[in-house]
């Protein structure tokens, strides 16, 4: 989905001096990094480090109070940029209608025509093993099925970048496995993946590189192997040891 030769490519993403304050409290401060067009970036850090917040800012759901978020194609509107991205939340928000209808609704929001939308939605369900549940109300699916449906919905949108906010934190191991497989699928299809997690094993399995956040500051952006073998900051080292860090 990311074609490097495209002149209007979304990536790389440059984040500079990013800060976010809420009710006088600084929640994110001086964050700087660049995301290249390929790879899987895992956001790590203790609770409250600002992982979810950072993804929401990048995705355009929140507006930074300072600093900049620059996508490769400048000058485009937030709505236009967001159409080429997708986000999967910790608890999937599904509409009160059938599984297939949920995916089709998302496609129709992006202006995909009916016939094309139906085909793409059915393909997406098929890919994530949800075809038998296509007519089932989304809200009565199991937690794992719901998260898979949220992934299928994101898949159908063919995003250039996918944000995942702790997508497996409420799931059992089998469902977690299927989410991880899905992340690999996205990766293979060329989608840039940015995902936060608390599960270090999962981080090791999936990460190409790691962004380590602590107390609203970005302490590391390093390739996965380096991060797990030789963390550069004492906080990351402590975090990897399982010490309490904040």
């Amino acid at each position: 989905m990311n074609d490097l030769s495209r002149p209007d490519a979304l990536l790389p993403l440059r984040v500079s001096a990013l800060g976010f304050r809420h009710r006088g409290q600084s929640l994110l401060d001086g964050v700087e990094f660049t995301l290249g067009p390929v790879g899987r970036t895992i956001l790590l850090g203790p609770n409250g480090a600002g992982k979810s917040l950072l993804m929401r800012l990048c995705h355009g759901l929140l507006t930074p109070t300072s600093g900049r978020i620059d996508w490769s194609l400048g000058g485009a509107s937030v709505a236009f940029l967001r159409r080429r991205q997708a986000m999967v939340f910790q608890r999937p928000v599904l509409l009160r209608r059938g599984a297939l209808a949920n995916v089709r609704h998302a496609l129709s929001l992006q202006g995909v025509g009916r016939a094309e939308g139906k085909r793409r939605a059915e393909d997406a369900l098929e890919r994530f093993g949800l075809s038998p549940l296509a007519r089932r109300p989304a809200r009565v699916l199991s937690g794992g099925e719901q998260q898979r449906l949220a992934l299928a919905r994101a898949w159908a949108l063919r995003p250039e970048i996918l944000f995942l906010d702790e997508p497996t934190s409420a799931l059992d191991p089998a469902a977690t496995k299927s989410v991880e497989d899905a992340v690999l699928d996205f990766h293979r299809a060329g989608t840039r993946v940015v995902m936060s997690t608390h599960d270090l094993g999962q981080a090791r399995r999936l990460a190409d590189d790691v962004l380590f956040l602590c107390g609203g500051r970005l302490l590391e952006q390093t390739p996965a192997t380096t991060f797990f073998e030789q963390p550069q900051s004492p906080e990351a080292a402590a975090f990897l040891r399982g010490d309490l860090v904040w």
């Binding site: 759901l61 159409r83 986000m87 939340f89 928000v93 609704h105 998302a106 929001l109």
Partner: peptide, 16 residues
């Protein structure tokens, strides 16, 4: 309140 982030993420305007 419940749908806001998801719908905005999917590119829905308030009117839509």
């Amino acid at each position: 309140e419940e749908y806001r982030e998801q719908l905005q993420s999917l590119g829905s305007s308030r009117l839509r």
